[in-house]
């Protein structure tokens, strides 16, 4: 049968930063072809196709909370594959190879992680599941 794609509404203008992305304008409707855990979703909008940030989209039929996975306060062990320097106050700075506990895997690709006493958002594309047990 026909594949029915999820339709989302654009909530803010977005300017692409690489050729594989597409520009977005508030109010546009886009159809999602693929949702990537790193927060980039592949979509088609009119005649254009490309990657867009999930953080700039909301589902047509109401808030996204229903889609967000529940937090796991026990923490899911991951290792940082790339360093990142926090740019906003609710983010956390980490070096390569650090073991952290992932508390909340948000759809926008910025996961809430805990390192000792510190918690903050970190790019999920710089995290890799660790096979170490808690």
């Amino acid at each position: 049968g026909p594949i029915i794609l999820d339709t989302y509404r654009v909530i803010a203008d977005f300017e692409k930063t690489s050729k594989h992305e597409i520009n977005l304008h508030t109010g546009d409707l886009v159809e999602i072809v693929e949702k990537n855990q790193n927060g980039w979703w592949f979509c088609q909008c009119e005649s254009k196709r490309g990657w867009v940030p999930a953080s700039y989209l909301e589902p047509l039929d109401g808030p996204e909370e229903a889609e967000e996975p529940d937090p796991d306060y026990e923490g899911d062990l991951h290792i940082t594959t790339q360093a990142y320097q926090a740019e906003q106050e609710d983010e956390i700075s980490l070096e390569v190879g650090e073991t952290v506990e992932v508390i909340h895997k948000l759809l926008d690709g910025w996961w809430v992680v805990r390192k000792g006493e510190e918690t903050g958002h970190y790019p999920s594309m710089f995290l890799q599941k660790s096979d170490k047990k808690n």
């Binding site: 909530i11 803010a12 977005f14 930063t17 690489s18 050729k19 594989h20 992305e21 072809v33 693929e34 990537n36 790193n38 927060g39 980039w40 592949f42 196709r49 490309g50 990657w51 940030p53 999930a54 953080s55 700039y56 909301e58 808030p63 990142y84 906003q88 926008d108 690709g109 910025w110 958002h121 790019p123 594309m125 710089f126």
Partner: peptide, 22 residues
């Protein structure tokens, strides 16, 4: 281009979205 997602992290949610979430 579905095969090569961007290598840089996506932007954080726009400010108005974060006010809604808060």
């Amino acid at each position: 281009s579905i095969k090569n997602p961007p290598q840089n992290p996506p932007p954080r949610p726009p400010p108005e979205m974060r006010r809604k979430q808060a």
